[in-house]
């Protein structure tokens, strides 16, 4: 399975994106996370499991509490992949800009 598959699948869900946004402000427990969302703690726990399996968050053990926090390296790596992918497209589009700038001077039809 490609390394980006699980993180992208995890991010496809709006509740999980909202959980990540909340965790970006600092670590939180299941109870903390369930409060702003209109869903049960077990449902939150399932979302957290998906995020953790995807490597996007980690669990810290603190006595009996299990606060979750972002896995910053994973998020940064995901960002890096997407940024590079976007840059490739942009390179192509900048060549396309140049073609468009020249186009007025070019006759229609194929040239080798």
């Amino acid at each position: 399975m490609p390394p980006l598959d699980a993180p992208f699948a995890a991010l496809a869900d709006p509740t999980r994106r909202a959980i990540l946004a909340r965790l970006a402000q600092g670590e939180a427990t299941v109870q903390d996370l369930a409060r702003p969302f209109a869903i049960s703690q077990p449902a939150i726990s399932r979302h957290l499991r998906v995020l953790e399996d995807a490597g996007l968050i980690e669990t810290r053990i603190q006595g009996t509490a299990r606060p979750r926090r972002l896995q910053p390296d994973a998020i940064a790596q995901l960002w890096h992949w997407l940024g590079q992918y976007r840059a490739l497209w942009e390179d192509q589009f900048q060549r396309l800009d140049a073609v468009l700038d020249r186009l007025d001077d070019q006759p229609e039809g194929p040239t080798p």
Binding site: M1, P2, L4, F8, A9, A12, W81, Q84, L88
Partner: peptide
């Protein structure tokens, strides 16, 4: 599916580099 999309992004990046 999601897996095909993830593969395509990785492949595009790898080929581009």
């Amino acid at each position: 599916d999601a897996a095909a999309r993830a593969t395509a992004i990785e492949q595009g990046f790898t080929d581009g580099i």
